[in-house]
Design a protein around this nucleic acid. Structure first.
Lengths: 136, 136
DNA sequence: TTACTAAAAGACCATTTTGTCTTTTATAAT
DNA sequence: ATTATAAAAGACAAAATGGTCTTTTAGTAA
C-alpha cells in the first residue's frame, strides 16, 4: 500500500511509542533492528520525523526518540501525507486530475467508498492507538 | 493509488475498448492524446500490453490496437499485477512480510476489510465493463 | 511492387525512491 | 572539563520508475 519510507516511519514511530509506554527512549540502532529496516535509512527518516515535529529526540547518553506526553495523538494520516502526499489516499483510481461525483471516472462509483474508508482509517488511527494494540 | 504505468495502461486499454465498440482500432498517437499521457511512453506501455497478450495490435495502414471479440473480458487485476505486482493490493498495510488474522499487525483488523474490497473491485471490474460505463 | 503507415524493439536519459556512510553537533555521565 | 554517546546534517550512490527518441519490422492500400 504505502511506500517504504512511510512503512518504516509508521513502524518506527509505533515502536518508539510502545517503548515510551515502558519509560524507554529507544535509539536508531535498536529501532531499525526491531522494525526490520535499514539502520542508516531509518536514521534519516526519523530525523525527518523529528524535524517535522512528529516526534522528539534527545542526543547523548540515554538519548533517543520519544513522544511528548502533553502533545495530542498523531493521526497516521499526517505522517503519510508528509512522506508521500495525499494522492494515494485521496486521488482518483484512474489517475484523472478531475474526478468526482459530478464528473466521475469509470471506477469512481466503486472506488470512492473504498477511498473514503481508507481516509477514515488513517484519520482515526494514531501512532498511539496502534501502539496500544501491541501493548495488550 | 496506482503508479503511472498502471494508470496509463488502464486508461489506454479502456479507451481502445471504447473505440472498438464503434468498430475503430485507435493508434498510439490518438490514444495518448485522449487519455492525456506521454505519447512515447504510452507506446512503450501498449507494446508491453500486446506482448503480454492483454490486447491485440495490427501494423500498417488502418492498424492500431483492439481486443479480440472471442476472448474473455480482462479483469483489471491481471493488468495491475502484471505492471506492479500484487503488493499494493494484497500486501500488509504496515509492510510486514508475515501478517494475517493469526499474526496480525496493528492495522490488520481495520485494513484487511478494505484490502478485501479493493481485491473484489479489481477482480470484478474488467476493461470491458469499464468501457461500457463510458459508452452509456 | 511500391509507397506509405503504424506498431515493435531497444537504446538512452531524467527523476524519484531507497539506501549508505562520514562528519558534525548536542547531551549526559563521570 | 572530559569523555562517551547518540542524534543531526548532508554528501553520495544504487535501483526503480517515468519518459524520450531512433531504427526496424510488418502490414495496407494504391
Amino acid at each position: 500500500m504505502f511506500n517504504k519510507e512511510t512503512e518504516y516511519a509508521l513502524r518506527g514511530l509505533v515502536y518508539i511509542q510502545l517503548q515510551n509506554l515502558s519509560g524507554r527512549k529507544p535509539g536508531v540502532t535498536e529501532i531499525a533492528k526491531e522494525i526490520d529496516a535499514p539502520p542508516f535509512y531509518t536514521a534519516k527518516i526519523l530525523q525527518r520525523m523529528a524535524r517535522n515535529g512528529f516526534v522528539e529526540s534527545l542526543k547523548g547518553k540515554g538519548g533517543g526518540f520519544y513522544f511528548e506526553k502533553d502533545k495530542p495523538d498523531l493521526p497516521i494520516k499526517d505522517l503519510i501525507v508528509s512522506t508521500e502526499g495525499d494522492k494515494k489516499i485521496s486521488g482518483c483510481g484512474f489517475g484523472l486530475k478531475h474526478c468526482d461525483a459530478n464528473d466521475p471516472c469509470a471506477l469512481h462509483e466503486l472506488y470512492a467508498p473504498i477511498r473514503d474508508a481508507i481516509n477514515t482509517l488513517v484519520s482515526t488511527e494514531t501512532i498511539q492507538s496502534l501502539a496500544k494494540k501491541y501493548a495488550k
